[in-house]
Structures are given as structure tokens and as C-alpha cells.
Amino acid sequence: MPITVQTLSDAVARSHARIERLEDQLNAADALLGDGDTGSMLARVIEKMAATDLSATSDIGAAFNALARAIMSATGSSLGTLLATGLLALAKATKGRSELPWIELSGLIGQAIEAMRIRGGASLGDKTILDALQSVAQSLAGITNASAAADVANAAASGARAALEHFKPLPCKIGRARLFPEKSTGAHDPGMLALALLLERSDLPESSAACLLKTVP
């Protein structure tokens, strides 16, 4: 089955169901470097996305656009605006289409990353959400239209996880966090962590720390 507006709604609903349990963990990850509000910010953003009614349209581009608008009214944080930027790039690329084959997903994420790079000024390797998305796009490059939904989801989750672990020992090189390299070295980037936990395949165990140690099958 190809990607439709329903696929987007389902993904938002899954994130919505999960974010509340992740909020404190993401806040704690952000508190090492920032104001400690990444989890609460994402909860607010996803809440607003989930409240966005996509049922009236079959146009995937219009749906991406509506979700981007929801983010832009929910937060002024850099991570939120970057996510909105990525969704706007996807909206532009998929305008007027009601079905997308899964093999296009990797390339579309690449287009979103490019728009986010231009907007935010981060380069790949700076330890941001862009690196996590790049890793996801690479992981998804191997899927075919015949791939099972579970394989696609596994590829996305392992891509996000691989980036998270790869960048953990490295310093962040952009934004306020670049001013404190000693704090970002050895710590997960809150945005990368959020993506990895939201894409995590298995149900979250009681202890979310345990979830971090789990390997993706």
C-alpha cells in the first residue's frame, strides 16, 4: 500500500500516543544544554498536529502543509521551526498527489533535510536533527515497494538509532549548544533522541532508560 494522507494521520496519532511518556526524558536530555523544555515543546507541537483535521483532503501536499502550519502556531523553538520547514518542503514536493510509493520516501526526506539546512544554517555533522534524518533517509534507501510495512518501520527506527549513538560522543557544533562543547560531548542531542524514541519499534518499557539500551532487531 502506498503512502496516503491516512498514513500521515496514523503516524501523527502514534507519535501523539507516545510523546506524553517521553516528555520528562526529553526535558531531562535538554536540561543538560538548554532550558530543559524540548519534551514539553514537542508534546505541545504533536498535540496541535494531532488536533489538525486532515480528513477533508486526499492531497498529501495539503496535509503536510496543514501539519507544518500547526507546528508554526504551537512553538517558536528552533527545533519546531526546523520540523515545520521540513514539512513545508515535503508539502511542496508532494502537492496534488494522493498516493506516494514508499520508494520515494528516502528522496523526499533528503529534500526536507536540504530545506532545513538552508533555513537553520546547520551542516551535516553538526549533531542536530538533520543528522538523524539523514541516517533515516539512508536506511530507507534500501526499501522497495514490495517491502513490508514492518521492514520500513524497522529501517527508519534503526537509522534514527544509529545516528543517535554515532553522535553521542561528539560535540554539537551549532546553536547555543556549540557554546558548551563539554556539555554536549557524551550526551544525546535532544532532537535526535526524540526522533529515535518516536520511531522506536517496540512498545516502551516502564523505564525509558532501558529503552535506550535496547537494540533494534
Binding site: D35, D37, M41, R69, M72, S73, A74, T75, G76, S77, S78, G80, T81, A84
Partner: peptide, 12 residues
């Protein structure tokens, strides 16, 4: 105006 020490959102 945004939240404390956070930029105003795009809509604003």
C-alpha cells in the same frame, strides 16, 4: 512574543 527565552512562533 515567545515563551521565556524562546523565539516567537512563525504565526505570530
Amino acid at each position: 512574543i515567545g515563551n521565556v527565552f524562546e523565539g516567537p512562533n512563525v504565526e505570530s
